[in-house]
Amino acid sequence: MKLVGIAIALAAVVALGALGGCANESRNDSIRAANKGAEAYGKKEIETAISNYKRAVELWPDNHEAWYGLGGSYAEKKDWTNAADAISHAVQLVPDQAMYQLLYGRILYEKAVRTAQEEEGRKENKKPEEVVPDLTSVNFEKPLQQLQEAVKLNNELWRAHYYIGRIYRDTGRAKEAAEELTRTLQAAPTDPGPWVALAELYRQWDYTDQAIQIAEAGTAVVPGITEKADIWFEVGMGYDDKRLYDKAIDAYTKSLEAKRDKHTAKFQRGQAYYRKNDYGNAKRDLEEFSKTGGVSVQFEKQQAAKMLVDIAAKSVVPGSTPVEQPKSPEDVVKKGKGRGKRGR
């Protein structure tokens, strides 16, 4: 019996060794699959990346780096539901990794915004991309929690501060938003988003000079040409607010050079030409905008139509001038919000 006991013990040791070998093999295969996923992601082959990352976590469910890569890959597709599920596994496995918390918070934020767009789109019978939902009532508690945890772990993560700033902005906490966005810009990010966000915020407060200063600084920091389209647009809007139409037109032109389908820049440039009585260029821009702008710029199309009618009337009666200059969407907003702020 003693010999049988020894034999069983030896067999158990051999079996455990074999199981350990299988476990190590699965882990190594998982790491190799994750490396292939990372390589595909770097080449923007997102579907291939997803396939490899999924294989990696199947082989070794504790491969947190693979879960992180899978979440990032789904985020590239704007598949926020699958992205959130994947990155949540990475966070659960390694909760003290700041980058995991950052990505989780960002994905949850984007998911919440997308849900709001879809709900508003159903109400208006439009595509989600064609509506601008009211985000003030959206519950951003969970993404804010993850992002705050990220900066707690690493306060140098400018993108975490950026998304915290966006949440504060979306929920009407303007002062906190400005603080977070300012902290973001101290890192001189090459992403145009933070520069645009803070410039927009300053313009809403009627701090036009500061808005222009921020946006122009962004054009010097952000590399590339296409990436600067939205920043140049903000520069133009700032000069438009100051009635410096030549400078506004120059900025809008740079925005359009960076991104030819920046339809709002075409509208704003046409309106700036109109306001400086350059009706030939105004007519060209406004007509082109009216033909190309989508449903999301319906209000601007109505304004363009009014200006074109005025221009047509002027061409019939030489020497006359348009009776009233139509208000831009920005002017309409400021009439309702901005005037009272100066008296505070």
Rank of each mutant, 00 (worst) to 15 (best):
M1V: 15
A11G: 14
A18Y: 14
N28T: 06
K36I: 04
E39I: 12
I50D: 05
I50Q: 09
Y53G: 05
A56L: 02
N63L: 01
S73R: 05
Y74F: 14
A84P: 00
A84F: 00
Q92S: 12
M99D: 15
Y104T: 00
Y104E: 11
R106H: 07
K111N: 13
T115F: 03
Q117A: 03
E120T: 13
G121N: 08
K123T: 07
K123P: 02
K123Q: 11
P128T: 14
E130T: 00
V131R: 01
T136E: 15
S137V: 07
N139Y: 07
L147Y: 03
E149K: 05
A150L: 09
N154L: 12
E156I: 07
W158P: 00
W158H: 08
I164H: 01
G165C: 05
I167L: 02
R169H: 14
R169I: 05
R169E: 15
A177P: 07
E180I: 00
L181S: 08
T182N: 05
R183I: 11
T184Q: 04
P189C: 07
D191C: 06
P192R: 08
P194R: 06
W195T: 11
L201N: 04
Y202M: 09
D206C: 05
Y207S: 12
T208N: 10
T208F: 07
D209P: 02
I212C: 02
G224S: 05
I225Y: 01
T226N: 14
E227A: 15
E227R: 08
D230T: 13
I231R: 00
W232F: 08
K247V: 03
D250Q: 11
D250H: 06
L256R: 03
D261G: 02
T264R: 06
F267L: 04
G270L: 10
Y273R: 01
N277T: 06
N281D: 15
V295Q: 11
K301Q: 14
A312F: 00
E324T: 10
Q325N: 11
P329E: 12
V332R: 02
V333R: 14
K334Q: 13
K334V: 06
K335E: 15
G343T: 08
